[in-house]
Computed example of a mutant assay.
Amino acid sequence: MSLINQMSQTSSQVTQTKNQPNTVSTNNTKTSTNSTGNPFLDGLRLPSNSAVPEAKSQQLTQEDFFSLLSQQLSMQDPFKPVDNDQMIAQMASFSTVDGISKLNDQIVNLNSVMTSSQALQASGLVGRKVLLPTDTGYISAESPGLNGVISTSEKIPVINIRIEDEKGQVVRTFTVDGSKGGNTDVKWDGLNDKGEPVAAGNYSIKASGLVNDKSQALAVSTYGHVTSVSLGTAATGAILNLKGGMAFKLSDVLAITEV
C-alpha cells in the first residue's frame, strides 16, 4: 500500500467529511431569535451568520500527512502490511519537500534584506558622479561640462569627437590624442562650435578613429550625476537615478569620482 499514491484520494475523502454539515436536533430546544409570530415575516428574516464557508488552503501540511499515515496504518491489511522501508522513504521525501519549501521562504527574505542593504550602500553615491557605459550625459547650468572615457584596443593617434544633441544634430567637433591606447579621457566644456553655451539637456559623445586604415566607431562611457537611489528588485538590485532622467543599475557603475 503506497501512502504517496493514496494521499490525494484520502485527502479528498477527509475534505468531503469535513465539509458535510453537522445535523443537530432542534426538538424541545428554545431559540433566542426574536419572532414576530407571523410565519411569513419570520421567513423573510436574513440569517444572522453567513452561509458561505471560509476559504481554506488546499495544500497538505505535515499534520495532514501524519494524519493520513495513521489512518493508513490503522486500515492496513494484516496479510499485506505496509513495507517499513517504503514508509520511511515516503516520510523522508515529505520532510525533504517541506524543508525545501522553508528554504525558499528564507531565500526570499534574504533577497529582501540584501536588496535593502544594497540600496543603503548605494545611497552614499547620491550627489556624486559615476562612470557609466553610455555615451549620453546631461548638461545644465550647474554642471555645464561633460566628461567621458574612450576605450580603444589599439593606439589611435587622432580620435575624432562629435557632440550631438537629443535630435542627433552635431553641435561641436574636435579631436583628442589616443596614441597611448587603452582608456582615453575626453572633456567637453559645453560650448558649441561658435563658442556659445548650449541649452540644458542630454548630449552624446560620439568617437571614431582609423583602425587598420578604416574609420571605426569607438566605445564611449560618460559620467553622470546621481540624484537618488531606488530599491529595485532582487534581480536588478539598486537603481541609480541620474540628472536628465536616465537610470542605471548599481552593477553598471565603472568608476566613481570624488565629491
Rank of each mutant, 00 (worst) to 15 (best):
G178A: 04
K180V: 10
K180G: 14
G181H: 09
G182M: 00
N183H: 03
D185L: 10
K187A: 09
K187R: 09
W188G: 15
W188S: 15
W188M: 13
D189W: 08
L191M: 15
N192V: 10
K194A: 09
K194E: 07
V198I: 14
A199C: 01
G201K: 11
G201Q: 09
N202Y: 02
Y203C: 06
S204W: 02
I205D: 11
K206F: 00
A207P: 11
S208F: 08
S208E: 14
S208P: 00
G209F: 07
G209W: 05
N212Q: 12
D213L: 07
D213M: 08
K214F: 02
S215T: 11
S215M: 11
S215L: 12
Q216R: 07
A217Y: 00
A219N: 05
A219K: 14
V220G: 02
T222N: 03
Y223Q: 08
Y223C: 00
G224K: 13
G224S: 11
H225V: 13
V226P: 08
V226G: 04
T227L: 11
V229G: 09
V229I: 15
S230E: 15
S230W: 05
A234M: 07
A235Q: 15
T236P: 09
T236K: 14
G237P: 12
L240V: 11
N241C: 01
N241H: 09
L242H: 11
L242F: 15
G244K: 08
G245S: 08
G245L: 11
